[in-house]
Write a protein that binds this DNA or RNA. Structure first.
Lengths: 142, 142
DNA sequence: ACAGGAATTGGAATCATTCTTGATTTTGGA
DNA sequence: TCCAAAATCAAGAATGATTCCAATTCCTGT
């Protein structure tokens, strides 16, 4: 059916290359898992899921792949406190709301016109390259 | 600046008890270091400084003390990415600006009227208990 | 098909932090 | 003041996430 010459893989529908990164079988699989599993999984959670399709994959490879994907801007690494890093494929600028009753992590978008200087007393002349916003709380059930 | 009220220790000027926490010699010393050293030191950095005055103090004790102080709301624990935790005695609600050229971490206050719902698309009904804002960037020298 | 570079693997190593277990110190009551 | 209980400390072992390393294996270009 599908040869391996064009830009799509047989099983994942993910291109052979993204953002200049060669998408090997394991990188495809890991990226697919992140796209499917929007729950901000940890490396270990990704590892467990990846073994369904790639029984020989190693945890080191999962870390390698996640790192490669992060470095090429394909996914983002998210840290809460000192817990294990989590990974998400949402590239829009966004923060995270951690619902403590359910454990669910929601992405929270920045509203249009978002500008940190509007609500923070930044050092004079500061040039912001990156912003990270994390909220903790809960969403009461009605 | 050493205003002694009722219960004060001779050497640090720090009360015997804060927020219901018994201020032992090592807790006083560690708290004093944080008040003095406003550079958001790590546990290990605090440990090194603490040994000047308490040569027998152990790293475990530094961790114990920092944890006690954090749990009683006397200081705050601050995490950047997955680096070692840092500690700061600034209890005002504030975020952090990490100047990447100098490595300096600046506290950034929230402006009056600060309200996360104004600039974030929170999940409907979300009750925010805590917010953490970290910026990375630099402050160009003129 | 072949060489050279990239990727993968499994296990060892690292590092911050936590835990465990006695030893010390402090506190409150007799 | 003196004692027993409770709290705190210290030292090192243990943990857990992540990184490093050395040895294959896999790709890519020729």
């Amino acid at each position: 059916m599908v040869g391996k010459h064009d830009s799509c893989d047989d099983r994942t529908g993910i291109p052979d290359e993204i953002a200049g990164l060669r998408m090997t079988r394991q990188r495809q699989e890991i990226y697919r898992i992140l796209l499917e599993e929007r729950s901000h999984p940890t490396a270990h959670e990704v590892f467990v899921r990846a073994k369904d399709r790639l029984p020989n994959i190693s945890l080191a490879t999962v870390y390698n792949c996640l790192e490669a994907l992060v470095n090429h801007g394909v996914i983002r690494q998210v840290n809460f406190e000192r817990e294990s890093s989590r990974y998400c494929p949402n590239l829009r600028e966004h923060g995270h709301f951690h619902d403590e009753s359910t454990g669910v992590i929601h992405d929270v978008g920045f509203k249009p016109g978002f500008n940190p200087a509007d609500f923070l007393d930044l050092p004079p002349g500061a040039v912001v390259q990156d912003i990270e916003i994390t909220l903790r709380g809960n969403v009461p059930v009605l």
